[in-house]
């Protein structure tokens, strides 16, 4: 029983960050029809920026998190302006390949810049766990969960309450009509990709200090993000949140009770099962935003 409670806490903490990863990917797909293969690399980029600000420049930890997220937004905007903007007429496959190329450049550029040795990011939280009854959790992890929740909430409010959000939702539902109604699709795309990238970088900035920062850290995370998004239904924001927590719990409980060897395989098996039984994902894309 103690073990089950601990797994519940671990699964929630893991699921929160998975949701953050999934949201950014599914938003970009929903608005732009782009499968973003650089998502994992933006995650790594956010983590490296946090490391650079905290360890090399001596910036305050919390300020570093915000700065790293902004760097992610800037890199996302740059990728959109330099690569994706020229490819708006291209088919979805060509765009995917360009993004794969970009992810190779980013990952190896990171290795070039930082070397292959993994880094730890110092953080101001107490390294001893908080113990509540049978359950223990690091204060840092609780902080990450809280910030993830705040980011998700802020993101929803932005979509719901701001003009940019309305423009995004309109483009999401019907790009042609949105363009006719005066939405400047080009800038909506730039904003979308920048925000989606910022969310990935934020996830990296938050999780970098929890785990470690290394050039290949984006590989598995990129694959996981795909899994989350497919689980929830491509382009569905509630689905990505649900998919994130579903994957977190499946991995945690299956890994804890069945076999740790297959821990990462359960996620992928779940996807194949979902696709075989309910090909449009858990939350079909019609109910995507708002």
């Amino acid at each position: 029983m103690d073990q089950a409670l601990q797994h519940l806490v671990n699964g929630t903490v893991l699921g929160g960050t998975y949701a953050l990863l999934g949201i950014g990917l599914t938003l970009i797909f929903g608005v732009m029809r782009v499968v973003n293969f650089t998502h994992g690399e933006l995650y790594a980029f956010g983590a490296y920026m946090t490391y650079a600000f905290v360890s090399l420049l001596g910036v305050n930890f919390f300020a570093a998190l915000a700065l790293a997220t902004l760097c992610g937004v800037a890199l996302g905007a740059a990728l959109e302006l330099v690569l994706l903007r020229r490819m708006r007429k291209a088919d979805i496959d060509s765009v995917m390949l360009v993004m794969i190329g970009a992810s190779l450049v980013l990952q190896n550029g990171e290795m070039w810049a930082w070397g292959g040795v993994a880094k730890l990011v110092p953080n101001p939280f107490n390294g001893s766990p908080l113990v509540i009854g049978p359950v223990s959790v690091l204060p840092l992890r609780l902080f990450v969960l809280a910030v993830s929740a705040a980011l998700l909430l802020g993101f929803w409010l932005m979509l719901d309450r701001t003009r940019a959000g309305v423009a995004m939702r309109a483009t999401f539902q019907d790009p042609e009509t949105a363009a006719l109604m005066g939405v400047r699709i080009g800038w909506v795309n730039t904003a979308t990709f920048a925000i989606g990238s910022g969310l990935a970088a934020a996830a990296g900035a938050l999780l970098g200090p929890v785990f470690m920062v290394s050039p290949t850290m984006g590989d598995l995370v990129g694959l996981k993000a795909f899994a989350i998004v497919i689980l929830g239904g491509l382009g569905s924001l509630p689905g990505a949140t649900l998919g994130g927590f579903a994957l977190g719990f499946v991995e945690e409980y299956a890994g804890g009770y069945l076999s740790t060897e297959y821990r990462d395989a359960f996620g992928f098996l779940l996807i194949i099962l979902v696709l075989a039984l309910k090909p449009q994902g858990l939350v079909p894309a019609k109910e995507r935003i708002g």
């Binding site: 073990q3 785990f211 990462d264």
Partner: peptide, 20 residues
């Protein structure tokens, strides 16, 4: 014996099991 894939970063499940 608990095992982990080389790229795994979250080892909570394995460690919780080892704790038992």
């Amino acid at each position: 014996t608990e095992t982990m894939t080389p790229e795994a970063t979250d080892l909570a499940a394995q460690l919780t099991a080892l704790k038992q």
